[in-house]
Amino acid sequence: MTIELFRADSYLKECAATITATQEGAIILDQSVFYPTGGGQPGDSGTFELEDGTVITIANTVKDRETGTHLHLVEEGTPLPPVGTKLKAIINWERRYQLMRMHTALHIMCSKVDAAVSGGSIGLEKSRLDFDLPEAPDKEALAAAINEEIAANKPVEIAAISDEELEANPDLIRTMSVKPPTGQGSVRTIRVGDVDYQPCGGTHVKSTGEIGPIRIGKVEKKGKLNRRINIHFS
Rank of each mutant, 00 (worst) to 15 (best):
R174H: 09
F131K: 13
H107G: 02
I91M: 10
M100V: 11
M176H: 08
W93S: 14
E94S: 12
P181R: 13
G183V: 00
C110G: 14
P181E: 01
E125H: 15
A141E: 09
R174F: 11
Q98Y: 11
D138A: 12
V117F: 13
K179F: 11
L129A: 01
P81M: 04
H107T: 08
E125G: 15
A145L: 00
S118H: 10
K154S: 04
L80M: 09
P134Q: 07
P170E: 00
A160I: 00
I158W: 14
V187P: 00
K139D: 06
R95I: 05
A144H: 08
L133K: 04
P170G: 03
I90M: 14
P81T: 00
K154N: 05
H107F: 09
P181S: 01
A141W: 02
P79D: 01
G185Y: 03
K179R: 14
D138G: 10
M102Q: 10
A116P: 13
V113Q: 06
D132Q: 10
T104G: 12
I173E: 04
A105Y: 09
A145N: 02
D138S: 13
L124C: 15
P134H: 01
F131W: 13
L80Q: 07
L129V: 04
T104M: 12
N92Q: 10
A143K: 15
G183N: 03
I122G: 01
P170I: 03
N169G: 09
V83R: 02
V117N: 07
I150L: 10
A116V: 12
S121W: 09
S118F: 10
L133R: 06
A144Y: 08
K126C: 10
R174Y: 06
K88E: 08
V83H: 02
E164R: 11
A116S: 14
A168R: 14
I150D: 04
I146K: 05
S118T: 14
E135D: 12
G84E: 08
I146T: 00
Y97D: 08
